[in-house]
Design a protein around this nucleic acid. Structure first.
Length: 511
RNA sequence: GGCGGUGUAGCUCAGGGGUUAGAGCACACGGUUCAUACCCGUGGAGUCAUUGGUUCGAAUCCAAUCACCGCUACCA
């Protein structure tokens, strides 16, 4: 029997500017889940990619006086660099300028037309270029885009429309029968609200933009970027080309998106799929925004969080830890340097870092750099471990990242307290054999507790997990870990020689 | 305007009809040395937004009010 599949995606960011922490946040949470599913033994396909068409990118490139394709190529390279930097373990990367993707988009447009779900009509209204969004007059605030507060363009053109309204009832029915289709529940309610107010057909082509996928049956038209972008989730798997990936992984288990693009994913995307006769994704997981203090990140206002600077200053693992520990899934989360430093010094340096550090030193001083072998022990730590594990796994299954980490940290702190209670340094002074045995058992238990913590930490801070294991001389690549095996107390039998001690999280001075 | 959410210690939040309301951080004091001035222990601190209701009993349920947030709609 093969492994159970798991297909997880992120939204594909628009390649007109450098990625900010908000987008990195989405990659991080998707990556945490992807890694978590892998250690559970699932066959995971984790997709991300880049959205590269549309007027805005065309304009940006033109302003910079570079060829559009060259421009996006450069942006994509930088995105890939950041994915790597942040230890994002995506299996696939789709570009909307990939020939394969463009071909799929065209096939889909043809299919929609053949189904009778496309028709030609006139659109007259407003278009926000930065947001690539069509807006009704009523949606404008002082004639400006409600989302980015910038001037919109008045457009009047002939477009192809998709019969979105036709799918309204089916969508409501689907939402009502699938309680977990959109999470968290508040977002699901929003979608239901939207649907109950009635849907209008949407324009899915443009004639004024040429940087896009040509509509195959009408040379004047190019596919609207949002429709183009949504298709990435199946084009990347080779939909329509009898792709092995598509047959294996579709329907997606989780589409991760930000709350700002809920309508595209929970209304338009399923409607398109319904029209195409493709099974719907199992879940749209909607996260909130990362705020800087109380402010929404905004390039134009200069409110930005640069992933490179953050990685340089605090390390990628710390940032991954911070966003998962501090931001409750679905809600907006405040990033402040103060709270980051607090988490860093408190949870990372003092708790886990110091536990590793003191254990390393004790093994060096009391045990000749060799971790003692497995022996019978007091059972205090094992008991706590068994009590925590199942609950922690359940937390992560349900996007309770913070609770998951809290449980692991409880375990880490119990290990810290265990040292205090057992006072191994006094046992080390003793000449008696029973004390020596006791000491060895304690040291083994500590290393085992640390090892298990790092197994649980793999999804959150893969880099640190690997580092910790290496320090204790424990073989194995975290990528191959399985929770049912490596997550069992006593899996490690001890006896390894420790490596050079390395401070995992050097304390940061508070400014 | 409609729908939904939130309001609990200085801060971030958990809890949720039943003895003195919890955690982490911060603060104060004590202990310890294996450790990254770290860890362990103890302590102070809250009219659980306001008002009213249901109940033997409400932070917990209900209603109204106020404040903030999200979605949506703007009309005679």
């Amino acid at each position: 029997m093969g492994k159970e599949n798991f297909y997880i995606t992120t939204a594909i960011p628009y390649m007109n500017s450098k990625l900010h922490l908000g987008q990195i946040y989405e990659f991080i949470i998707a990556d945490v889940i992807a890694r978590f599913k892998r250690i559970q033994g699932r066959d995971v396909y984790f997709l991300t990619g880049s959205d590269e068409h549309g007027q805005k990118i065309y304009k940006t490139a033109k302003e910079k006086n570079v060829d559009t394709k060259e421009y996006v190529d450069k942006m994509v390279l930088d995105m890939k660099r950041l994915l790597k930097l942040y230890h994002i373990s995506n299996d696939g990367f789709v570009r909307t300028t990939d020939k394969k993707h463009e071909k799929t988009v065209q096939e889909i447009l043809t299919k929609l037309k053949d189904n009778g779900d496309l028709y030609k009509s006139h659109y007259e209204g407003n278009y926000c270029v930065p947001c690539e969004t069509f807006l009704l007059d009523s949606q404008l605030i002082d004639g400006k885009c409600p989302e980015c507060n910038r001037e919109t363009e008045r457009i009047k053109e002939e477009n192809y429309f998709f019969k979105l309204s036709k799918y309204q009832d089916k969508l409501v029915e689907y939402l009502e029968n699938n309680l977990d289709f959109v999470v968290p529940e508040t977002r699901r309610n929003e979608v239901l609200g939207l649907l109950k107010q009635g849907l209008k057909d949407i324009s899915i082509s443009r004639t004024t933009v040429s940087w896009g996928v040509p509509v195959p049956f009408d040379s004047k038209h190019f596919c609207y970027v949002w429709v183009d972008a949504l298709i990435n989730y199946i084009s990347a798997l080779g939909y329509g080309q009898n792709g092995r990936l598509f047959n294996t992984y579709w329907p997606a288990d989780q589409h991760h998106i930000g709350k700002d693009i809920l309508k595209f994913h929970a209304v338009i995307w399923p409607a398109l799929l319904m029209s195409l006769g493709i099974e719907l994704p199992r879940q749209i997981a909607v996260h909130g925004w990362v705020l800087l203090g109380k402010e929404k990140l905004s390039k134009s206002k200069g409110i930005t969080l640069d992933p490179d600077e953050l990685a340089d200053e605090y390390g990628v693992d710390a940032i991954r830890y911070f966003v998962t520990r501090e931001i409750s899934f679905g809600n907006d989360g405040a990033f402040t340097y103060q709270s980051l430093v607090k988490r860093y010094n408190g949870d990372l340096s003092n708790d886990i870092g110091n536990l590793v550090s003191r254990t390393m030193t004790m093994i060096k001083k009391f045990s000749g750099e060799i971790v003692p072998g497995k022996a019978s022990n007091s059972g205090a730590l094992v008991k706590k471990w068994e009590a925590l594990k199942t609950g922690a796994i359940d937390d992560l299954e349900n996007y309770r990242f913070s609770e998951y980490l809290t449980k692991i940290w409880e375990f880490i702190n119990i290990a810290n307290k265990y040292i205090e209670d057992m006072q191994p340094w006094n046992l080390a002074k003793s000449e008696s054999d029973t004390d020596k045995e006791k000491l060895n058992a304690i040291l083994y238990e500590l290393v085992e507790a640390i090892r298990l913590s790092s197994v649980m930490v793999v999804p959150i801070m893969p880099g640190i997990s690997q580092k910790i294991l290496n320090q204790f001389g424990i073989d194995g690549n975290i990528e191959d870990f399985l929770i049912d095996k490596h997550g069992n107390w006593g899996y490690y039998s001890g006896g390894t020689k420790i490596k050079k001690k390395e401070i995992l999280f050097p304390r940061i001075k508070e400014k």
